[in-house]
């Protein structure tokens, strides 16, 4: 299969998911797959009960990837995530018991409830894709993706992620309430948790690894590159923004745009790809002037900046 047809698998997968399982969550699904295909992590910032966990579970089920879950609390220790060495009396030596992070898709629920020490351990693992426990380095499995969630409303007893940590998430998005008709249908039909275990994977681990390579070779023309760069520069000089986008943000935006183009069935990046992913990729990285703003408010600021920059059409 050529790169231009291989992406059909993922396009079909997305269609199946949003048609049969996760109605009304196309955007977050697409962004999750973008994160998966560009090797990044995703932070979902929304209220409980809107299907954050279901999205992660469904994605794991349909890709046939292993799934691990960490419910973060303030007493969560780094070893609770990474695993620890336990003395094996039979063998007479310590053996490493891998933690939940040794899965392909790891759900870090309510990540802002964990202590900073634990947060930083997790984030280090996310960045390095390996875990060092008692001097031994353990590599994390093939496709590795973190699904972190965060509850924006409940701020007591939480440790908000610092900006430097937020930068490590490729994408940050919300889910939002489903449309009225859909929500009624969901309530009527009950959750889909039960059906998840029955799902047959539509893509394999190999498909994902190949797709990641394909995404990497999606053509990014100078015009679009200029557009991305113009966007980053514009955030740095906006009066509402204290700290604009970093170079890493630019790299990530290009990656996500490539994946977006791949999912749109193209082997080149169009400015539309950049525009469609920019808020999800960039908004959470902005440090605003005049106190904290929620992710959606930052998204609005970024959207106005994006609208100011003309798309390169020629």
């Amino acid at each position: 299969m050529s790169p231009s047809t291989r992406n059909q698998v993922f396009i079909e997968m997305l269609e199946t998911l949003s048609r049969d399982y996760l109605q009304g969550k196309e955007d977050v699904l697409r962004l999750s797959v973008i994160a998966l295909l560009s090797g990044g992590h995703i932070l979902i910032e929304d209220l409980p009960g809107l299907g954050k966990t279901t999205v992660a579970l469904t994605l794991a089920a349909i890709t046939g990837l292993s799934f691990g879950r960490v419910q973060c609390t303030s007493d969560l220790l780094p070893s609770d995530i990474t695993g620890l060495s336990v003395f094996n009396r039979d063998e007479g030596q310590f053996s490493f018991q891998p933690g939940p992070i040794f899965n392909n898709i790891v759900l870090l629920d309510e990540i802002n409830r964990a202590m900073p020490r634990t947060q930083s351990a997790m984030l280090e693992a996310m960045e390095e894709r390996r875990v060092t426990v008692e001097g031994v380095t353990h590599h994390l499995p093939g496709p590795f993706m973190v699904f972190a969630t965060q509850n924006p409303s409940d701020q007591s007893g939480t440790f908000p992620l610092p900006e430097s940590q937020l930068d490590r998430f490729l994408i940050c998005t919300d889910i939002g309430y489903p449309p009225r008709a859909l929500e009624r249908g969901i309530i009527a039909g009950g959750g889909i948790r039960e059906r998840i275990s029955d799902m047959t994977p539509l893509v394999t681990q190999d498909d994902i690894m190949t797709a990641r390579r394909d995404v990497h070779s999606v053509y990014l023309s100078d015009k679009v590159l200029d557009y991305i760069h113009a966007l980053i520069i514009a955030t740095r000089s906006d009066e509402l923004i204290q700290t604009g986008l970093s170079t890493r943000a630019g790299i990530n935006l290009a990656q996500a745009s490539r994946a977006s183009a791949y999912l749109a069935g193209r082997d080149y990046v169009a400015p539309d790809d950049v525009r469609n992913t920019a808020v999800a990729v960039c908004a959470h990285r902005l440090v605003m002037r005049g106190g904290e703003l929620s992710a959606s408010e930052r998204g609005i600021v970024l959207r106005t900046i994006i609208d100011r920059i003309p798309l390169p059409l020629v």
């Binding site: 053509y219 023309s221 015009k223 679009v224 749109a264 193209r266 080149y268 990046v269 169009a270 400015p271 539309d272 525009r275 469609n276 609208d307 920059i309 003309p310 798309l311 390169p312 059409l313 020629v314």
Partner: peptide
Amino acid sequence: GRMGLFEIAERVGNERVGEFAAIYSGAVYR
């Protein structure tokens, strides 16, 4: 440059517009 070609195609929902966007972008953005 207020809107991308694919965005237009999506909004319009016209096959021909979509084809135009695909052919044109296929050259220009390559």
